[in-house]
Design a protein around this nucleic acid. Sequence first.
DNA 1: GTGATCAACCCCC
DNA 2: GTCTGACGGATTCGG
DNA 3: CCGAATCCGTCAGACGGGGGTTGATCAC
Length: 518
Amino acid sequence: MTLLAVIVETSSKVASTSARLAKVRELAACLRQFEADEIVIGVAYLSGETPQGKFGIGYSVLKIASAAASASEPALSVLEIDQRLTEIASIRGGGSTSRRADALRELFSRATEAEQHFLMRLLIGELRQGALAGVMADAIAAAADIPVDKVRRAAMYAKSLGAVAHAALVEGENALASFQLELLSPVAPMLAQTAADVGEALEQLGEDTVFEWKMDGARIQVHKSGDSVHIYTRSLNDVTAAVPEIAELVKGLPAREVILDGEAIAFTAAGRPHPFQITMRRFGRKLDVEKLRAELPMRAYFFDCLRLGEESLADRPTRDRYEALARAVPADLIIPRLVTASEDEASAFYDAALAAGHEGIMAKALSAPYEAGNRGASWLKIKRAHTLDLIVLAAEWGHGRRTGKLSNLHLGALDPATGEYVMLGKTFKGLTDAMLEWQTKEFLARETHRDDWTVYIRPELVVEIAFSDLQASPRYPGGLALRLARVKRYRDDKRPDEADTMVSVRKIFEAQSAAPAA
DNA sequence: GTGATCAACCCCC
DNA sequence: GTCTGACGGATTCGG
DNA sequence: CCGAATCCGTCAGACGGGGGTTGATCAC
């Protein structure tokens, strides 16, 4: 029987070093200590997850529970924690918040302070030990003395990394072969790297490149097995009930067994794609699905086929998978695509995608396999970014490796009509350590006032911000918010009165929602 | 008791 | 989702 | 030819936006 304290001790050692190999050694040593029925749970905890997944425990509930007394000696076992968490996850309905907090407090009262701290971070989803599933895969390979490639391959198709660890440690290397692409069992979708433009994409991928429109909806993976159809999200949640029209569509396809990769997105009656936030009113919804279905129909566009009939196509090249896709799905459900080695043709294709209201295009190597769960170099996304010179209005203190630095910027633009600065969003992205250092000093020199987390400053600093979109905002005063904002550079060369104002901000918003030129 | 509002949480990008 | 930093294996450089 | 420097892919962790659902609380 393994105590939670063993895991807590391991996590602490893992966190204390930045060397990945040392982390792997510590994790592997811990894995070898587990008994068979503890492996799935222990692997989850040491990868910053619980077997129960997310179940409604956040910072607020934990704050109540953490008021508990603590035990002086470790006594909780791994299996008991798992049992208690399963019970807590099952508490629902009226009064559940306080009953959950009570149950958590009781559990915490039997944990040492170190164990409480670990459980807090685990349940909130911020273990911050510098090791998650990626490092854990290495550790499983090391503990079972199996090549890491085999572990990673099994992990692509397994329900959980813990299941892979169990098979590897209990049954050995050969057992990993039983993890295969299966119908109605979703696999982590392949992700893409970024390219600045079509020229860069062609340079990286070479002659054999296919371009596809990139639509700004939600990724879907569709499985059909006879009469049974399920639709999964990028993180493998089942959203079949939220998009019944797509399920019906797939039920009507002639193929009996098929796995498709694609995008779900809502369109206007005029045939233009809705902004992402409109698509999200449908996607993942549980209530009133039928009512909204009528006014906000969802479409599916497919771009890959991982299985058609008996055989898995994941290891086959893109061109073979496309050939299967074309057999499985009518042409109007396939995302617009173009095979070309011509930069001019590719650019025109990109312009057409943007003119049709889409996000950009993808570039894919025709000879590459489907790398499930990987951010593979054979898929590149090409999106344009807007840029504005905005004013820093305030900044928030950072956490973790940014503790002690002012990190998250409040960004705004002057509204000439009122003379007031209008906040448009926040960002912490794109800042180097040197910039963090510099801006902390500069902000504090301009401080006007502060509260718990935020330091407000005189509107004197101009910063160039890149962003994907402007979204309609229910919370910001101008009714607009930056989407995916990141810092490009500080504009030391610009005075605040030379920065962009709300006039140019509104102009961008209007241009992006306008109908296409005739 | 019932509906409206709010805060916390999760899930898409 | 974007971006930076760190690690470590692979590759290139310099004498 | 070998050790050092550099390159490159992978992983983790900084936290953004808007949606929804659920349960708690407030007003009547």
